[in-house]
Every structure is written in structure tokens, then in C-alpha cells.
Amino acid sequence: MDFINIGAWDIRITLDLFFGGIGVGAFLLSVLLSLYNRESLQSTIKIGAYTAPVSVGIGLLLLVSKIGVPAKFITTLWNVNLQSVMSIGVFLQIGFMVITIWYAVLIWKEFPVNNQFRLLQTAGTFFAFSTGLYHGLFLSSLGRVLWTELTPGMFIASSIAAGIAFVLLLKTLIDLVTKDEVRTDLIQSTLPLGLHRFQVMFFIILLVQLVSVILWQFYTGRLELEQALIYDYFMKQYGTIWTSLVLVGGIIIPIIITLVSLVKHEKNMAPIPTIIICVLILVGSFVMKHLLIIGGQIALPVGFVF
């Protein structure tokens, strides 16, 4: 059988979702850490705060560049279609963008502690989650067989993990270069579950991702004939990369490393495993998103399934 690839979207869509995802994760990290100890974690909070708008901005620009008439992107603001996830998503993304910029500016200027700042953080968190969810919902709303109800979960988990990984990687590299003491953790566990600790963060979020990816693999291959055929074809084409880079490299190995670190009750993770873990998560996130974007456009010859 000759499968078709509709080929409507290319790597620019992947990059939009990838960078947008990093923005989501970076922002959430920044907010989370600011709840804990804004003094000692200031540099990480700042990296997160600055990464978010830049990353979301790059993603958005790539998206705009991908559409057929970039100049008309702005018309999505008034030609609204409430049924369209994308139409709503435009507002979410722009809203998130505005908040992250505002947040970054505030942090850069004065890092205030007031209700307005808290409100901004709350709103930003809402928009961050919405944007993160939107990425996957946007795909699943198109009804293509590989873009299922599990896609939003896979995407948001992957985004948050990638955002944290990106910030942590940047922080580690900066610390290494500036010969500062590399700190990836704090001593006391004052947030519930130790959520401020990267090992814990990664462990939880990667676990969510692992579950959603495994569920996706399990169900997609076992539904209707059309899905099964396309899933088989997808796995035949990309299965090796998917398993090695997304599943093992991007999720399982990082989980093992964090787990080992947690079991050893390490307070800090050493720079090298930190870098490895971050790179693996980033690569895994990118590859997962890219394969799903490309593979999701595989279609059976129309009419094969009636």
C-alpha cells in the first residue's frame, strides 16, 4: 500500500512547538523557584524568566514564517473561530508572550514582591499551562490518527521537562564557565514533595511523560484498522529513532539517573550527569515532537478505509 504524507507542515512547526514548550517549562520553573527562595535561586529564576519570552517568541516567529501568508497572521486576532483550537491558541500564545515579557521586565528591573507580581505569576502560570496544553490539543483537534487524546499530555509533559532542562543546562554551563559553584539544588526541603529539587521535578514530569507515551503507543496501535496501519507504518519508518531517542534516551535514562540521585539522597547533582540528563531530555523532546508532526501527516490512500 502506498501511504501518503500530506506534508503540510515541516520542521518549523516542530520548532514552534519545541521552543514554545521550552518557554512554558522555563516560565513555570521560574515561578516555582521564586516561591521557594528567591534570593539564593535568583540566577536560575532569572534565566527561566528571560528564556520564556525569547523562546516563545522564536517559536511564534517560526510559526508565522511557516504559514502561507505571514503578513496576515495578525488577522487571526479578529477573524476568530471559537471552534478552532488554533484560533484560541493564538490568544493563549500571545497572552502568554505578553505576560512572560512583562514578568521578565519586572524581574530584570526590580524583582518586586507585591500582589501585582503574584497576580502576574498566577496569570502566567495559567497561560503557561494553557499554552502547553494547547500545543497538543491543537494537534488532536485536527483528528489525525496519530494525534490522539493522549497527545496533549505527551506534549505538555515534554514541554515542561524540556523547559526545565533548558534552564538547568544554561545555568550549569554558565556556572561552569564563570567558575561559580555549581548548585542545582537547595538544602532544605520546604516545598511539598521537595518539588524545588530538580531530581524530583524531572522524576515526576518524566514519569507523566512516560505514562502518556506508553499509553499512546499502546492505544494507537490497537484501535481501528486505519490507526493500526498508520501506526505500524510510522513505527516501521521511525520506530528505531522513536525508541532510542524519545523513549529510552529522552525519558527512561533521565528517569534512572534522577532516581539513582534521589535514592542516593544527593542534594546536588554533579555537573556532568546534569548536562547529560538535560541534553537527553531536550533531544528527546525535540525528536518526539518532530516525529509526531511529520508522522502525524501520514495518511492512507483516501478511501482505503470506508
Binding site: 501518503i4 500530506i6 503540510a8 507542515w9 504559514i67 502561507g68 501568508v69 496576515k72 497572521f73 488577522t75 487571526t76 477573524n79 478552532s84 488554533m86 483537534s141 485536527l142 483528528g143 489525525r144 502525524g296 501527516q297 495518511a299 483516501v302
Partner: peptide, 15 residues
């Protein structure tokens, strides 16, 4: 009104 996002192309089950 079309901006060329091609979502419709992907959403149409009939290609």
C-alpha cells in the same frame, strides 16, 4: 481570510 496555516488540509479526512 485564509492565512495558509494548512490546518484544514490536515483536518480533512478526504485529502
Amino acid at each position: 481570510k485564509c492565512i495558509g496555516c494548512r490546518s484544514c488540509e490536515l483536518a480533512c479526512p478526504y485529502n
